[in-house]
Simulated scan of single mutants.
Amino acid sequence: MKIITMGEIMLRLSTPGNSRITQSNEFDVVYGGGEANVAVSLANYGHDAYFVTKLPQHEVGQAAVNALRQVGVHTDYITRGGERVGIYFLETGASMRASKVIYDRSHSAIAEASEDDFDFDAIMKDADWFHWSGITPAISDTAAKLVEKACIAAKKNNVTVSVDLNFRKKLWSKEKAQSIMKPLMAYVDVCIGNEEDAELCLGFKPTANVEKGETGAEGYYEIFKEMKETFNFKIVTSTLRESYSANHNGWKALLYDGEKFYQSKRYDIEPIIDRVGGGDSFSGGMIHGLLTKESKQEALEFAVAASALKHTIPGDFNLVSEAEVEALCQGDTTGRVQR
């Protein structure tokens, strides 16, 4: 199936191991970013996954393109131009010390891209799904306009649209987020986002403290119902993270389709190798599950298993196969060597 994602792919500079930025003399280099990570997951599951962005012509831009090509993502719709690739620095936490992200992404190529850089009708032709996240409209006003144009083209071509709300307080305020995100919800069929995202992006009052890891499924029921009724979503879904420490999380998910609430099995993840991209891997697994599984419960189980596995893999990309996810869904959590 042809699946489109659009956003920013960045150069990630992470400290080796659990060292702090202030003590590091070198950084590990990988590439990643919300919608790019989703495209990688979908390519791993056998879909024709296309990533839409703008990258400079120089070697760093080419390295980002190559990173996607190496894992099977189609780069046909990547426009070349602009001055820079966005950067983010990652300091991986441990125990009670949280991980930290520092952005250096202002004036990146995609943040300054224009509508003339993309032919969205051609991009959406024969597509089955279009996915974006709240990070993309947050990076610039012009990027927000690109999201709107892409959504319009998707609906014109009868393409299912999903969003991961993904509020980033380092990129915009809740007031700015709501002014942009609420109108864009008119194009969305599948909404992904926890209670914090729902409050900050869409204005729904939370009943649980997400920051403290108070994520009982019951706290989501009323908000999911309100979200669906307000924006006419077909599906609302979210991961539920229980944060015991930087290295130890509980992990499950919830889905609501207007008739029934579905709750996944819970995974105890310890030690966490890299939690960056965990939500993106859930989105990728959910899209695959909704497109290929017979029931919403199966789709949910696939998505949460895929995202649990991502926590064991360094880097932004979830480099797992469909077969590996299915094995975890079936209860294979032993970690035994495969011979």
Rank of each mutant, 00 (worst) to 15 (best):
A198G: 06
V236C: 15
K125P: 01
G33L: 07
I235H: 01
K205L: 10
T160S: 13
R275M: 08
T237W: 04
I110D: 04
C329G: 06
G61V: 02
A143F: 09
E115L: 15
H58C: 01
Y244V: 12
G284L: 14
S173L: 08
T5F: 08
P16C: 08
E8K: 09
S245L: 06
G277F: 05
G216D: 14
I235R: 01
Q62E: 03
T237F: 06
F204D: 04
G285W: 05
P56E: 02
S281F: 03
S41K: 02
N25Y: 09
L68S: 08
F118I: 00
G289V: 13
A308L: 01
I152F: 00
T160P: 05
N209W: 06
V190D: 04
P183D: 04
F282S: 12
L68K: 10
L202V: 06
I313T: 06
K149C: 12
Y220G: 11
M286L: 15
T22M: 07
G46Y: 01
H311C: 12
Y45G: 05
M227P: 04
V276A: 05
E175W: 04
I287W: 07
H47F: 07
V40Q: 05
Y103Q: 09
H131G: 04
T22A: 10
S238V: 09
H248S: 12
S238D: 07
A122F: 06
A323I: 09
K100Y: 02
A177M: 11
G82L: 03
T292H: 14
V85Y: 08
I287C: 03
I102F: 14
V30D: 14
V337D: 03
G213L: 10
E211L: 15
C151I: 00
W132C: 00
E301F: 09
L42T: 02
G17T: 08
K170T: 08
L291E: 07
A98W: 00
K2F: 04
E175Q: 13
R12K: 01
P271L: 06
M181G: 05
P16W: 07
R80N: 08
W132V: 01
V188D: 01
T230I: 08
I135E: 01
Q57L: 11
A144L: 12
D48P: 00
Y256V: 09
Q330P: 00
L202T: 04
V60K: 06
L55V: 02
V101H: 09
M1G: 14
S238N: 13
K296I: 08
K293G: 00
Q57A: 12
L319E: 10
E148P: 03
V325P: 08
Q62R: 12
K212S: 14
T5E: 02
A67T: 12
N318L: 13
R336M: 04
F224V: 00
Y256Q: 11
A111V: 05
Q70T: 13
K252Y: 09
P314R: 13
F120R: 12
G284T: 13
E294S: 15
S281A: 15
L146E: 07
L184M: 08
M227H: 07
E326F: 00
A49Y: 03
L328V: 11
W251I: 01
G72T: 07
F118Q: 02
L300P: 08
W251G: 02
L68W: 05
D274N: 12
G86S: 14
R69G: 14
V276E: 02
V60L: 15
D332M: 06
G86R: 13
G250M: 03
A111E: 10
G258W: 05
I235D: 00
D117R: 09
V337G: 04
